[in-house]
Design a protein around this nucleic acid. Structure first.
Lengths: 175, 175
DNA sequence: CGAAACCGATTGCATTTTGCAATCAGTTGC
DNA sequence: GCAACTGATTGCAAAATGCAATCGGTTTCG
């Protein structure tokens, strides 16, 4: 990478990294959905990414330093993708993006509850979430119990909305 | 517009709006560069957008409700593009995007000074800047003197860096 | 052992988007 | 009257995207 940039403007360079329709979707699913494997990303997202595009973007994001890839010890063919610090620090941007979209675009209620909680939590919650991601993806120590994580909080909020909208079904349509 | 969205996720919908290589560049030039006319946007940006792409994006951003177009009373052919509130509230996202790019990407010093100042100013500065944009583009009242605007502050910072890097030339290469 | 499911991709191909240069018709300033 | 400028438009090649089928290998389960 790092060839022929259009300009040295920070906003332009950021767009050159994830100014397309899929890169941030993949990172969103890894950050908020906890997805780590190719198949999880392929089948898990609502937007139905094609497998060749997913492969291309994973490769590209690795070249850009946003992801790393490691072998899964439990399965000789499985690969585990991890976020780098570079990708983890996108959390505030994703939080703002979600907050903006929630105001101006036709979001669905159950999918925007996470954005709402993350917006209300503000920078302290984002910091806590980034620490959790560092623990998950970079192996840094953490003292947060697994049931008090930000991701669990967001997930609980999501399930509460789903339960309220379709009471009694008890189903959990997360991917 | 507002047809066949990939999903109701706020982040996905935001990407459907400006998840391409040019839309945010145009908005950046309008917000930070004060560009209002087609030719200013065409010739002013460092990234050299093509005229057909610019025309397409302006049309698209109008359809999405991010821009409005008005006739310029001083020139029968001239059009003035204005930001809507929807676009003005992108300021925090652009600030974060600039801050992130400044940390992780090979930005040039003179082009990143604005991002640095905007980051250091924090949300209060962003609010002030959005108020100035509302005054400029929406005609709302404002009590900020023209020489104390956020844009003037950012521009002064930029010129200070340029002057320091090429002392004595006195040139002003802004577009 | 053997079939089925699953693993991360890859291939081929049609469609869409982009990038680039040339050009348009009308307006303005000199 | 003429050159410069206005917001675009057109034609065309190249690249990106979307989609379905498929690949060689691994694991699971009966």
């Amino acid at each position: 990478m790092s060839i022929d940039h259009r300009s040295g403007c920070p906003i332009n360079l950021s767009l050159e990294v994830f100014g397309d329709r899929w890169s941030l979707i993949i990172l969103r699913d890894m950050i908020f959905g906890g997805k780590r494997h190719f198949r999880e990303l392929l089948n898990g997202s609502l937007e139905r990414i094609a497998s060749n595009i997913l492969a291309d973007r994973l490769k590209r994001l690795m070249e850009l330093g946003m992801l790393t890839r490691a072998d899964d010890p439990t399965h000789k063919q499985k690969a585990i993708y991890s976020l780098t610090e570079m990708a983890i620090t996108l959390v505030p941007i994703l939080a703002h993006l979600g907050a903006w979209g929630r105001v101006w675009l036709p979001v669905s209620e159950e999918l925007s509850i996470r954005a709402e909680l993350l917006e209300k939590g503000g920078p302290p919650m984002w910091e806590k979430f980034m620490d959790e991601l560092r623990h998950e993806h970079l192996g840094t120590p953490s003292d947060t119990p697994p049931d008090a994580t930000v991701r669990a909080t967001l997930q609980a909020g999501y399930e509460a909305v789903v339960a309220r909208k379709a009471p009694g079904t008890g189903c959990d349509p997360r991917a």
